[in-house]
């Protein structure tokens, strides 16, 4: 018989390396005389979309389009180290470094422009849609490219290098106090599953995932990260297990270490929660790993809701579920009180 259940999982997750480990990201920026800009950083985009985020940050700051920004990454000859693509840290940490560097280059440009426009302060200069000009005076503006080109003829370049460091401290082992991570990400997910009571097989039908991302710099990517994390979370909950024997991995292949296929992944509905993280670039913080955390709790809780058995080790394999069902029946008879199992 197939039984359905619903479960909730909540999670919080400290992003970045944490525990006082040096967590430094860096970026070089140059605004070019064709009206484009380059961002160089060691941060490698492995598919999570960090390069797109950096282009968006630079474009937003410079009044350009993301496609006007060239992002150069992961080249030890030319890019400054920004640590690993890990720990859910690039949008926040490297994003902050990029933002600082862009603002630094922009400040020089605005100072230069203020002088060119005979303004007393750079406060009155704006960058908008590829133009640079005096705020509120449309007659005093010129294409950004022209301004940078002329400046260049006079030996002026708009180049910057900046770093951003996430400050954390190790936890005091005596009293558990400290600031081991910053920032924290939060999320909650609801899973609906169907459990086959004859075989112990679980199919996850639906996941609704709500995640606080500070600010979604790229909502499409946020959805993609959440869906990817949910798929991994489903694998984590139901099938993925590294089998070790005397230190050797026994299943080091896709034929023996199974991950979910398109048919194993549920319908995923994402809810983006934007609660500004004031220390992040435009209020943003990371999402990659945190979105995986609630999934497995939601799935395992949904299994309990469906068939009344608590699975306490991962993955929740059909073997474990069926054994628990057999045990439950033996103890309480068919349809035994699930409260009794829980206590």
């Amino acid at each position: 018989m197939k039984k359905r259940g619903i479960g909730l999982g909540c999670g919080w997750y400290g992003t970045g390396y944490g525990n006082g480990f040096p967590d430094v990201s860096s970026a070089f920026v140059e605004i070019h005389d064709d009206g484009s800009a380059t961002v160089s950083t060691g941060a490698v985009d492995v598919g999570q979309g960090s390069s797109t985020v950096f282009a968006q940050i630079a474009a937003e700051e410079l009044g350009l389009e993301p496609q006007d920004i060239t992002v150069i990454t992961g080249d030890t000859d030319t890019t400054p180290d920004s640590g690993t693509s890990a720990a859910t840290r690039h949008t926040y940490n490297t994003g902050n470094a990029v933002l600082k560097a862009v603002r630094e280059a922009k400040e020089r440009l605005l100072d230069h422009a203020a002088h060119e426009f005979s303004c007393t302060s750079a406060q009155g200069i704006e960058l908008k849609e590829g133009w640079i000009g005096v705020i509120g005076d449309p007659s005093r503006r010129q294409p950004l490219a022209d301004m940078v080109f002329q400046a260049r003829l006079h030996g002026e370049r708009f180049i910057s290098a900046e770093s951003s460091t996430a400050r954390t401290t190790p936890v005091d082992r005596e009293n558990g106090q400290g600031a081991p991570y910053w920032p924290y990400a939060f999320g909650a997910q609801v899973a609906e599953v169907e459990v086959d009571t004859e075989t112990g097989l679980v199919q996850v039908l639906r996941i609704i995932a709500a995640h606080d991302v500070g600010r979604a710099i790229n909502p499409t990517q946020v959805e993609g990260q959440i869906a990817g994390a949910v798929a991994q979370g489903v694998g984590y909950a139901l099938m993925e297990e590294v089998e070790l024997h005397e230190g050797v991995i026994k299943n080091p292949a896709f034929s023996s270490y199974l991950i979910p296929t398109a048919l194993d992944v549920p319908n995923i509905q994402t809810i983006i929660v934007e609660e500004e993280e004031i220390t992040g670039p435009y209020g943003a913080k990371g999402l990659g790993e945190p979105a995986m955390v609630p999934t497995l709790a939601a799935v395992v809780n949904a299994i309990y809701d469906a068939v009344g058995v608590r699975i306490t080790s991962l993955p929740a394999t059909p073997e474990k579920i069926l054994a628990a069902l057999v045990e439950k029946e033996r103890t309480f008879g068919e349809g035994g009180m699930r409260q009794n199992i829980d206590s």
Partner: peptide, 10 residues
Amino acid sequence: KLGRRRALAI
């Protein structure tokens, strides 16, 4: 048949 997942399952 019974497999460990819904496709590519031995």
